[in-house]
């Protein structure tokens, strides 16, 4: 990506940052949803739901990233402000995964 024009680079970076954050939030929401359905069952599940969650989180993150990269009117601002919105979304998701394994 060396030589990437600034505007395109901002779109790529904004999309990547949104992908990373959305993939974490999607994963946490899916897991919390499964725990809310049946806490005893979710702990005893086979491995397949875990891989399914990862795949869905990657798809959700990718979709959110593509949408933001494509339609954001000021992608550079999305990147500049990531220093506060990324932790604001990721830290509660990570905290929830620690609190509700």
């Amino acid at each position: 990506m060396s030589g990437t024009p600034p505007a395109r680079g901002a779109r790529v970076a904004a999309g990547a940052l949104v992908f990373g954050t959305a993939a974490c939030v999607s994963y946490a929401l899916q897991r919390l949803g499964a725990v809310a359905d049946d806490p005893a069952l979710v702990f005893a599940q086979a491995h397949i739901p875990y891989f399914g969650r990862i795949a869905m989180a990657a798809i959700h993150g990718g979709m959110a990233g593509v949408v933001v990269a494509g339609v954001a009117t000021d992608p550079a601002r999305v990147v500049r402000t990531a220093a506060w919105w990324a932790p604001a979304l990721v830290l509660p998701a990570a905290g929830a995964m620690v609190a509700y394994p």
């Binding site: 990506m1 060396s2 990437t4 600034p6 680079g9 901002a10 790529v12 970076a13 990547a16 940052l17 992908f19 990373g20 954050t21 993939a23 974490c24 994963y27 946490a28 897991r31 990862i54 989180a57 990657a58 993150g61 550079a76 990147v79 500049r80 990531a82 220093a83 990324a86 990721v90 998701a93 990570a94 995964m97 620690v98 394994p101």
Partner: peptide, 25 residues
């Protein structure tokens, strides 16, 4: 759960660096 978080966040940070954008992000 956290290992997955680490992977996607590292990918996001690395792509941002290669896109030559704000290094703080």
């Amino acid at each position: 759960h956290l290992a997955w978080f680490a992977l996607v966040l590292a990918v996001a940070g690395t792509v941002t660096l290669y896109a030559r954008q704000d290094p703080r992000a």
